[in-house]
Design a protein around this nucleic acid. Structure first.
Lengths: 128, 128, 128, 128
DNA sequence: GTGGTCTAGACCACA
DNA sequence: GTGGTCTAGACCACA
């Protein structure tokens, strides 16, 4: 089952972190249509946040057409965002992992790597 | 001069977006010690946000020891976060750009790429 | 300014009544892009409901792309749903008012009229 | 036999939708005293809802004096709400159908028509 | 002052 | 037990 992690220092609102992590799981194929999201009670146990905040996130995902809540049953994934080449075993993932190893060998910290990735991605590969 | 872009739908508060984008520019070397940040008036023109919000972000950066405000003059970068291998002309950046080109050729959208990068980075290259 | 009326016996949830009445006002042209919705405080005075319930309705309308909330300023209409022939002075409205007069003259109560209208509309004019 | 249709997005609770659709059928004369309502099992097949929800709706209608449950037999209509001029063959229905045809010819969608009808009915024909 | 988030908890609809 | 609604109120971001 998907595990949510709340980072209170990130500057991102709690419910939006739930939304983003769920979308991320849909992208990577960790969640597929038919899967059940954890109940609000389970998320509360995982994360120590208020059940209403979980429901707010789930309602947001529902309005995006990604999940559907069923009273008395749970909240279920209704749509996939998964692209086949985005899985953890894809060649692209392998290449990226090797690149990451080289970056770490060069002494880059996570924050450096994030900054580099972000600058290249935002640039759209334009300068290649 | 650094350009700020505010995304009101991101779930990140406006002032924190200014903070994060400034830190990002310090990481990539776009901003270096001595550089002047745009005045709050200039940021207001760029972004349509309230000058108080800009000042709050700059105060936050000042508390982190990254910039310093000088009355009647402006706000100046006082510290670098730049790692030499993180620049846009570094081999690591080149390799990442080539990887990005392959990912785009495989039909991945920006959201797919973000998800893939995030999953590999969060995994810490553990499985390599 | 648009007046909301909450009917606690209707079986429709409170926030959805706000949503429906706003959509109705957009349809009839009572609200047009640029118009400001009443603040949550004003709605609370009008209707005696909780401000969070108002915000929930406004957030719902925002996700539908009909309005936009601006912190410190208010919530504004961003899109019209108005069809020119739906105004109160349109010939169609006039004809319907004359029909309503005849229905009332025949002794029909509001509930009878609602039922008749609903049955004809749901039938789609198929049998004409 | 009366067909129930549940719209989960309407904001009206499921059991209340059953109640309202039954009252509607009593108004239009689709249901008359002596008629048998579908059993909860039949409604479950029609609508995919829980039998308890059907029973709750029927109990509600029984409290309103409109139907009566007979153990081992079913639930029967005990009272009419039908006004003779509200039938599908009444002149008023004919006129309304012709009006509807004109409205559709003018390019109005169902939502536009609902809004127009609602605005005229709520206005009570006052301005005629 | 205005909207947005979050909490705590009551209560309801539904299965 | 599960999701959904609503309240009351604290606190924050923003203008």
């Amino acid at each position: 089952m998907i595990q949510f992690r709340i980072d209170r220092r990130s500057g991102v609102s709690t419910y939006m972190q739930i939304v983003q992590q769920t979308r991320q799981a849909l992208r990577t194929g960790l969640l597929v249509p038919g899967d059940k999201l954890p109940t609000s009670r389970e998320v509360v146990e995982m994360t120590q946040i208020n059940p209403n905040t979980v429901l707010k996130a789930y309602r947001h995902l529902e309005m995006e057409g990604l999940v559907q809540g069923r009273a008395g049953s749970g909240t279920y994934v209704t749509r996939s965002l998964h692209h086949p080449d985005v899985g953890p075993d894809s060649p692209l993932a392998d290449e990226l992992r090797r690149w990451l190893t080289r970056a770490q060998a060069a002494g880059l910290e996570r924050a450096d790597i994030d900054a580099l990735v972000k600058s290249v991605l935002d640039d759209g590969g334009r300068t290649t």
